[in-house]
Amino acid sequence: MKLGVIKAYVLKELTEIVRSRLIIMVYLLPTMVLVLFGYGIRMEVTGARTLIIDNDQSHYSQLLVSKFEHSKYFDSTIEKRGEAKALDEIHKAKSDILIIIPESFEKRLLHGQSTQIGVFVDAAFPMRGSTMESYVKGVVLDAASQMFERLGGNAPTISINQRTLFNQAMRDEDAIVPGLIGLVLLIAPAILAALLIVKEKERGTIFNFYASPLSKGEFIAAKLIPVFLLHSINIFILFLWATYLFEVPFRGSFLLYWLTSELYLMISLSIGMLISIVTSTQIVAVVLTVIVTIIPGFLYSGILMPISSMIGVSRYEAHIFPVMYYNHILYDVFLVGEGLASSKTVMYIVILAFLCFFLC
């Protein structure tokens, strides 16, 4: 392999990328994806439109109502109306939660009798509905504990000394942004790698390489080295966006982050190169790359759903795609900080190395 020839073609490719303005896509696309999805995806539900019907109008019912009013998770409205009309508010998408406090609420509490509170939750989106339901339960249990103390209850109680680990503030950014880095470094390099090779096939200029003394290995190296170098800079840019713009903590080894990212970048380039083999036009190459990278990237990266919670075939499918292994390492270096002390992290690095060797 002639290094001088490769260097000349690499400079030619870099010049062509700048001249064709693909350089804008190299750095604009990853940043746009990170910023748009980093701010756009929200697991936490705040300001849920809550309609409360207090049929009791007692001291303890107002105590329960005040718990909802002083919580950031609920945008509470207290009204006096029938249950049927209140349910219409949810049917018309004007309310997310309906809470009905019965008339004998305080009386039953004072007499030590069990009482029920009606709660209706809009669960058209199951994940959001489940989250809102858990918030309601938490507020009701907190209010019940306070009521029990005021009533002079002396039954033994269990207090929970809760500590959250790795994401103490429970910020969505800390959970989503590291995963988005894995998604971006899978999609953008693969698209560019596929385009650079398919472009030669579409224009017919690839026959110039056939007629030249350039070997296949030198041709592929000349095409992929510029993409690799350009996106290697993206590794640092995305890190800066994550830590300074989104203020995601970084608790692990930067060397581990950088080396595994370069390894993952090679896998992404290999996927783009494989797609360029089976396509002959740039549009088809882009569409196929998007299908192969974005769909598995979202489903099996752990951004929206933990891999451990998947069941059946989906759990095995997740282990086919490299994004699952890389994102585990990302969450470790950003939030956990175990690094090579974790046997699972070491195993995933070995798997990424095997995938890189196999695809290359």
Rank of each mutant, 00 (worst) to 15 (best):
G252M: 06
R251E: 05
L245E: 05
F219G: 06
I237P: 01
A211P: 07
F228K: 13
E218D: 14
W241C: 03
L229M: 15
A193Y: 13
I225N: 09
V227N: 07
L245V: 15
A211M: 09
E202A: 04
W241M: 07
I220W: 07
F228D: 12
I235L: 11
A221M: 12
G217Q: 09
G204F: 15
L255D: 00
L195Y: 10
A193M: 15
R251S: 09
R203E: 14
F250S: 00
T243W: 08
K216T: 13
H231G: 02
F254L: 11
F236G: 11
K199M: 02
F219R: 04
W241Q: 03
R203Y: 13
I237R: 01
I220P: 08
A242D: 05
H231C: 07
T205Q: 02
A211Q: 05
I220G: 05
F228L: 15
A222F: 10
T260C: 09
F228G: 13
A194L: 12
K199C: 10
F209K: 00
P249F: 08
L195K: 01
F236T: 15
E202G: 04
I220Q: 05
A211S: 13
N208F: 09
S261K: 01
G204Q: 02
A242V: 08
I237T: 10
F250P: 03
A194S: 15
F219S: 02
N234L: 13
F209Y: 09
S215C: 04
H231D: 09
W258I: 08
